[in-house]
Amino acid sequence: MNRKYLKQAPYALLVALLTLLFVYPFWWMVVNSLNSSAEIFGVPRLLPTSWAFTNYLDIFTVQPFARHYLNTLAVAFVGTAGNVLLAALAGYAFARMRFPLRNAAFLLLLTALMMPIEVTIIPLFFQMRGWGALDTLIPLMLLPIFGSQGAFSTFMLRQFYVTVPNELEEAARIDGLNPLGIFLKIMLPVATPVLSSVAILAFIAVWNTYLEPLVFISSLENFTLPLSLTNFNDTYGLPQWHLQLAATTLSILPIMVVYLLFQQKVTDAMVNTGLK
């Protein structure tokens, strides 16, 4: 009996250590989002000192935080939906159709896969200016669809569609479905697990985007959350720590709740697609 517990001890220690490392930062953030600015520094405490719930109201008056939230949701939503849809179309075609220049086009697309946005951010700035798209959410929506994230999704879906047995398509063709019908009615549904993990990855990537809005967006009402979080400054550009932490908490919380609710699904999707 004792030996059994002893054997478990190192694992318990490991779990404890990991918990401290990965949970404490979030805990600290939530606690101090409920403190006044002056209480944040000093001996860390497990619970807030002043329970300043007003911080959570103040962040909406200091800047249009709700607007920033909606912007981010809009960008993430359109970006993810477009990304998955176009990637599925292209991934399917690359995997199962025969057309001239197929391999060339695929190889070309793969150059985008690994391309850091930092390489092209300067020309993109001038290009967006030319299109009159600066200081709008449009480039933020389109870049995740067509940039490296788009290429990544296309690649993943192609890899998946290569493994789908021919019979499915044959049967559909005999049923008289046209190619678009086959894609929509057969090929999209069978790819649901891959689609969902690709969508999750795309959503996380768009939600995280920082450099693009930093360069493209200037008006306060067009900010996305990452810009908003770094903009809780007082009159002289000094961070308003308590508000920044409250806003950060609010920016993380919904995603975290969704994630914790669907944790099993999310991680299973990742594990099972076996990103290869």
Binding site: V78, L85, T136, I138, K185, P189, T192
Partner: peptide, 25 residues
């Protein structure tokens, strides 16, 4: 049914993104 659901969802997404794009434009 499942197929229809996926198709509907996707159509919805597409229409929505188009609508949003136009709204912004």
């Amino acid at each position: 049914n499942q197929t229809k659901g996926v198709v509907r969802l996707l159509t919805f997404l597409l229409v929505l993104s188009l609508a949003m794009g136009m709204a912004f434009a």
